[in-house]
């Protein structure tokens, strides 16, 4: 009993310690952001390419398939009620409010977040971070903050692209394959999707919030990783698992706040 309590206490203390370190890390990162943002934009652009542009294939292909599945499922269910004309709105609202930001954040965690963690963890394991410090170069300004900011920019853009491609996928299945009228498909979408309530709140606000969490977790796990191959492997796994859980939990809270009173 005492041993179990001790284990529980150690577990809680360990988690609280990590949360404290992550908070201090976030503060250092924000301070570093202010220091380099206007003097070294090239560092951010380079990283936007790495985490954003290189993530495009998985985002575009996944977006297309998700949209196509939505079109097919939506049609199959709506046609029973003679409501297939609403398919455009169903596809668009599903993607804009939920699937666009959530799925792209989950894919981002797997593709770019894990890569960020592994890269920073390896830099730590091979003493590149230490050597940078000894050269009087702040790793927060040179390595951490540019990657965080690049991710912060990249994920909302990827979510927008995912949503747009998903709508095209839904259009292809609904209109080209299942015979839904193209004019109805687009006009229903135009009539039902609100600019502020759905697009700004859905795609933009949600994906910015997810981006903040996903990139914070990714860079922190890399910096906090035990500098061994096993330690980096575990940190990479933690990035994907923690980001996925955080995104899904945050999604519920944001959805309740944004759409709960409708």
């Amino acid at each position: 009993m005492i041993a179990q309590l001790r284990r529980l206490g150690r577990f809680v203390l360990d988690k609280l310690g990590r949360l404290g370190r992550a908070s201090l890390f976030f503060m250092d990162m924000v301070i570093a952001l202010g220091a380099f943002l206007f003097t070294r934009p090239g560092l951010v652009i380079q990283q936007v390419y790495s985490v954003g542009v290189l993530s495009l294939p998985i985002i575009v292909v996944s977006g297309l398939f998700v949209g196509m599945v939505l079109g097919l499922q939506g049609y199959t269910n709506l046609v029973d009620f003679g409501a297939e004309s609403s398919l455009g709105a169903v596809v668009a609202l599903s993607l804009v409010q939920e699937l666009g930001p959530v799925v792209s954040a989950l894919l981002y965690a797997g593709r770019a977040g894990s890569a960020l963690t592994a890269e920073i963890g390896l830099m730590k394991a091979t003493e590149q971070i230490s050597s940078m410090e000894m050269m009087a170069v702040d790793p927060f300004q040179r390595v951490i903050a540019p990657r965080f900011l690049a991710g912060l920019i990249a994920l909302p853009l990827l979510a927008c692209i995912f949503t747009a491609v998903g709508i095209l996928g839904g259009y292809y299945v609904a209109v080209q394959q299942l015979g839904v009228d193209a004019g109805t498909f687009w006009s229903q979408m135009q009539g039902r999707v609100e600019w502020v309530d759905d697009i700004i709140n859905g795609v933009l606000v949600k994906s910015i919030a997810f981006s903040l969490v996903a990139n914070w977790i990714a860079v922190f796990e890399g910096y906090d990783a035990i500098p061994t191959s096993e330690g980096i492997g575990r940190a990479t796994t933690r990035t994907v698992v923690n980001t996925s859980l955080a995104v899904l939990g945050l999604d519920f809270m944001l959805t309740a706040l944004m759409f709960g009173d409708k």
Binding site: T126, Q128, M134, D138
Partner: peptide, 19 residues
């Protein structure tokens, strides 16, 4: 500290070159 480190060099065991 960073100002002082500009006058220091350190050779790490692994070399620690930026890969």
């Amino acid at each position: 500290l960073y100002r002082l480190r500009k006058q220091m060099g350190m050779l790490f065991q692994s070399g620690a070159l930026f890969s």
